[in-house]
């Protein structure tokens, strides 16, 4: 368990360090859409559209907190998936990482 916590902490630290280096320009698909002149309207804009928290703005802290929320959400959802999919009547071990 201790090892897993260290790895998760390293992931968060890597995110915090790499985030300022990330480009905010559109990705390949977004640019293709923009170049076509099409205006895209999403039916669902998410809770934190564009990986930022609206009340904080779209700076580093906002994106970091939104990303941190995403990390926790992915960790919880995939852990639960892993538990749900765990083979029944077989040896259970959590010493994978």
């Amino acid at each position: 368990m201790r090892k897993q916590i260290i790895v998760v902490a390293l992931i968060v630290v890597a995110f915090a360090v790499l985030l300022p280096l990330a480009s905010k320009n559109p990705d390949g698909l977004q640019k293709l859409v923009a170049d076509s002149g099409a205006k895209i309207e999403q039916a669902w804009n998410g809770l934190m559209s564009g990986y930022s928290i609206a009340s904080i703005g779209d700076g580093y802290v906002s994106t970091f907190l939104a990303g941190l929320f995403g990390i926790v959400a992915v960790l919880v959802a995939t852990f639960l998936l892993g538990k749900a999919i765990a083979p029944k009547n077989k040896v259970e071990t959590s010493k994978q990482v």
Binding site: V8, I11, A22, I71, L81, K83, P87, V91, V97
Partner: peptide
């Protein structure tokens, strides 16, 4: 799988989630 993948699945998925947040030109 004869053992639970839960921890490995969760950590590797979180790693990929972070990797996909970092756009480079």
């Amino acid at each position: 799988n004869n053992h639970s993948l839960a921890a490995t699945l969760a950590i590797s998925s979180a790693m990929v989630f972070v990797a996909q947040l970092i756009n480079f030109p």
